[in-house]
Nucleic acid binder design. Structure first.
Length: 879
RNA sequence: GGGCUCGUAGCUCAGUUGGUUAGAGCGCUACGUUGACAUCGUAGAGGUCACAGGUUCGAAUCCUGUCGGGCCCACCA
């Protein structure tokens, strides 16, 4: 039953219904798509949002881009899969819940105990997860919910455990002692990238260990000097060269130290005294020096940030207290030479901002350098670098390939154990000195599981294949099921800020598990800043809630505003005004459709959208433009130029279809088939960008779903190329003429009510039909009384406009004097342009070097200008 | 210290291997709007493409340098 559409589009009334319709259809799941057996797969695994909080507008941008890619491919006949999921975000989540129970119950996690605390975390996780999934659906995301995953669900736990065991057996995972970033408050290690640097003013103390020690050193942390085992100097430093290799016994504030003088290029000659006390246990760089020089390691500070036993009066003190005491003692002994303020960067925990204490500790590591048989004798690092170098994985924009490689080359072994409770517990069991690695404890009593959990990136690093059924779908090196059909995936789309954190890990994990890349293209989007160009953050309160914006403007408008006017890898600013303008466009499209459907009888609704009906001039023009635009849009989408694709479509839809063709269609008859044809194609082309409104309009005249229609990548251009060009030229002339008439009318300040008359002289080779001229000009200018005469007839009225081969005379309200002035000015302009153009053409280099078609264009342009000039000169003489 | 990035209209941004007169949206000005759309239409104003050199017949685009914004990494003993 034919129904008139509402005057304005109301997103909030339709979006939920449309989404339900999509879900019910089952087409989010590629298994339900009606496709030939050999249809190529197109897979994107959604970067799982952290379940620490609800989604922000940045997530919306991610969803908009990925859904665009997915919908475009689905329409293009791919076996399209987009897998949803969420990330347990171990440390971050535990931190949020710890804060929550401290606030609500006044308890710490230790008060609750591991089991009760984890129950609290899971409660929180389930609530947030529901919110996130709801928000994701509101954006219109065509995710296959039947494959929903969580980085810590049962399936993923199995996969993670298996990965750990495999890596342990290949000795990629090992247990070792290392300097780690230790947060004394969180009681956990932090990865290097979880450490933040805070600028501060620190005291730099310059002193001697004892009176009989020859070298003066500087430090900001005198308390750690209790564990010094060497003094390092730069080998180039003349001042200290003679000491290198010597051993000294000193008494430093009551502590006996054995100090060796070593040479190391890491020592900066300029800083302090150019000599550095080496404390292997409490500085990463000192640890390296200690390894290189086989120095003993003395631990001074414990996990609680207190001085350990065995350091006399200092034992049990906080590090800062010990520092004061030592400084006082040095001063008392006259050893302290200088005390000055310096700027330095304090390493702090990214969560609680507690100062990091570098400590040696037994942790689990993944070796990135171990050569592996399964990788043809190459290491994970080498394979990961090779993938980028050989362009097996390409980056968009390309510059991130360099960042990735730089980072990868400097990568050290990855510490994967964390001293927190929420996460994948390490599948290692201890009984005294015995150690067992496996899913379950071995038989026998007394086995205790390692209390630590895995770094959250361990499980998210496996995301492309743990979501596709690994390890069950991988036996004896052969993939099966989803893994065979969808891995490697096509695109990994995410923010550039986790290029190193996540992407690098996924690549290494995939090589280890499957020997292949996880994805072939990495598309990186920028950050959405607030309207002042500042990062959005909870503490600043400048975040934008996607649901609120969707409620106000509709999901389509939000999507389009995030997709347009932005380029990969570059940050963009969010503004309501932009969303509003996109909402206006959505409404425009709605009204275009409303007009077409109301002007079309129901029996035409079935018109095929794959073949174009036979056209008149204006029809040919719009069809050529549709075909050309479809081609350009497709190219832009293939090249990830979403913004340009949308701009092209916008230009076609608004400026060509609505502004010109629909106006023609109001006069010319029998356009129903062609209108439906165009509308269907326009809706398909727009669907990946604005799925809701397009599907809603489509449902008014189609029984099937738009989301599985056929992309017009090769719609026939009925006219030959040269004919298309001619059509375009003719139509352009009409457009120019119309605009000229409007201008003339405006300049002559003629009241529209006067219903101007005009006489238009046709040029013999303009190739336009009088009737076509009449229709369009009449319509677009409001000139009701229009007369078109053959050239040669004389008329003594003032000329208003000259366009191409056409002269327009307005029969009323023309001031001859004014007109002459105007024409003289135009003449002057033309002469200027002509002289410029001739100069250009007479330039031998231009003709010799510029492409032929540009030279030809310049020539014809010049000819056109000259013709027009002649005409104007003639008219001026007549005035 | 190393690296990346940006500087184009009042604002937010496009501009894809250098090529006719540099674009869009918003804002602004003027005019208009009786049946697709005021979430609208028509027209207009507004740009030394940060600056200075260079390469080229030709530069917003490539090179060098300067200034200014942003980001990342490392180090800060």
């Amino acid at each position: 039953m034919k129904q008139e559409l509402d005057k304005t589009y109301n997103p909030s009334e339709t979006e939920d219904n449309i989404y339900q319709k999509w879900e019910k259809s089952g087409f989010f799941n590629p298994d339900n798509l009606d496709l030939p057996k050999n249809a190529p797969a197109y897979t994107i695994i959604l970067p799982p949002p952290n379940i620490t909080a609800k989604l922000h507008i940045g997530h919306s941008a991610m969803l908009a881009i990925e859904d665009l890619l997915i919908r475009y491919r689905r329409l293009s006949g791919y076996r399209t899969l987009w897998v949803p999921g969420t990330d347990h975000a171990a440390i971050a989540t535990q931190g949020v819940v710890e804060k929550k129970i401290l606030k609500e119950q006044g308890k710490t996690r230790h008060d609750l105990g591991r089991e009760a605390f984890l129950a609290e975390v899971w409660k929180f996780v389930n609530e947030t997860q529901a919110t996130i999934l709801h928000q994701t659906k509101k954006m219109g995301s065509s995710l296959d919910w039947s494959r929903l995953a969580f980085t810590l669900d049962e399936t993923r736990q199995k996969a993670v455990t298996r990965m750990f065991i495999d890596m342990y057996q290949e000795e990629v995972i090992y247990r070792g002692e290392r300097i780690v970033n230790w947060c004394p408050r969180c009681h956990s290690t932090l990865a290097d990238d979880e450490v933040e640097h805070k600028e501060q003013v620190a005291k730099l103390y310059t002193f001697k260990y004892s009176l009989d020690f020859p070298i003066v050193i500087s430090t900001t942390r005198p308390e750690t000097k209790l564990g010094d085992t060497a003094v390092a100097v730069n080998p180039k430093d003349e001042r200290y060269r003679r000491y290198i290799g010597k051993q000294y016994k000193v008494n430093f504030c009551g502590q006996e130290l054995n100090l060796k003088i070593i040479a190391d290029y890491n020592v900066d000659l300029e800083f302090g005294t150019g000599a550095l006390g080496v404390t292997p246990a409490h500085s990463a760089i000192d640890w390296q020096m200690a390894q290189a020089n086989s120095l003993p390691i003395i631990k001074v500070i414990n996990e609680a940030g207190l001085i350990r036993d065995g350091f006399g009066v200092y034992s049990g003190l906080k590090a800062v207290e010990a520092r004061d005491l030592i400084v006082a003692k040095l001063r008392e002994q006259g050893l302290l030479e200088k005390e000055e303020d310096i700027n330095n960067n304090l390493s702090v925990c990214y969560r609680c901002e507690t100062a990091i204490e570098p400590l040696p500790s037994r942790q689990w590591f993944i070796s990135v350098d171990k050569k592996l048989e399964r990788l043809g004798g190459k290491s994970l690092k080498e394979k990961a670098l090779e993938a980028a170098a050989k362009k097996e994985i390409t980056f968009i924009p390309e510059r991130f390939s360099k960042s990735y490689c730089d980072w990868m080359e400097n990568l050290h072994d990855w510490c994967i154990s964390r001293q927190i409770w929420f996460g994948h517990q390490i599948p290692v069991w201890y009984k005294g000195e015995e150690i067992f690695v496996g899913q379950e404890a071995p038989s026998g009593t007394g086995w205790i599981q390692d209390p630590d959990t895995l770094d959250t990136w361990f499980s998210s690093g496996m995301w492309t294949f743990s979501t596709l059924g690994w390890p069950d779908n991988f036996k004896d090196g052969v993939k099966s099921g989803d893994l065979a059909r969808f891995h490697p995936t096509q695109v990994l789309e995410t923010g550039y800020e986790i290029l190193t954190l996540w992407i690098s890990r996924m690549i290494m994990m995939s090589f280890f598990a499957l020997g292949e890349i996880p994805f072939s293209t990495v598309y990186l989007h920028g950050i959405i800043l607030d309207k002042n160009g500042k990062k959005m953050s909870k503490s600043k309160g400048n975040g934008v809630d996607p649901l609120e914006v969707i409620n106000q403007y509709g999901a389509d408008a939000v999507r389009l505003s995030l997709l347009m006017g932005s380029t990969p890898g570059n940050d963009t600013r969010y503004s309501d005004a932009k969303v509003e303008s996109k909402r206006n466009f959505v409404n425009k499209l709605w009204n275009i459709s409303r007009f077409i459907l109301s002007a079309t009888a129901e029996k035409f609704y079935a018109t095929a959208y794959r073949t174009a009906p036979a056209p008149t001039l204006a029809d040919k023009w719009i069809l050529n433009n549709l075909a050309a635009s479809a081609k350009i849009v497709t190219e832009h989408l293939e090249n990830f130029n979403f913004s340009l694709a949308a701009e092209e479509l916008n230009e076609f839809t608004w400026n060509k279809l609505a502004d010109w063709y629909l106006e023609v269609a109001k006069i010319e008859k029998n356009k129903e088939e062609i209108l439906i044809y165009i509308l269907k194609n326009v809706l398909i082309l727009w669907h990946p960008f604005i799925p809701f409104v397009t599907e809603e309009i489509w449902s008014n005249f189609n029984a099937d779903l738009l989301m599985v229609a056929q992309w017009p990548q090769d719609i026939a251009v009925k006219t030959a190329t040269n004919e298309a060009a001619m059509v375009e030229k003719k139509f352009q002339k009409i457009q120019e003429l119309v605009i000229a008439i409007r201008n003339a009318r405006g300049e002559n300040k003629v009241e529209p009510a006067k219903k101007l008359e005009a006489v238009i002289y046709g040029h013999e080779d303009s190739g336009l039909l009088k009737e076509q001229m009449e229709i369009i000009i009449n319509l677009k200018t409001g000139l009701k009384s229009l007369e078109i005469r053959e050239k040669g007839d004389k008329i003594d009225k003032a000329i208003a406009a000259v366009v191409g081969g056409w002269e327009v005379y307005l029969l009323g309200g023309v001031d001859k004097k004014k007109e002459k002035e105007r024409l003289l000015k135009e003449k002057e302009n033309l002469e200027k342009i002509i002289s410029l153009q001739s100069a250009k053409l007479s330039n031998a280099d231009f003709v010799g070097h510029a492409p032929e078609e540009i030279v030809a264009a310049a020539k014809s342009k010049l000819a056109a200008y000259q013709a027009e000039l002649e005409k104007i000169v003639k008219i001026i003489q007549g005035l």
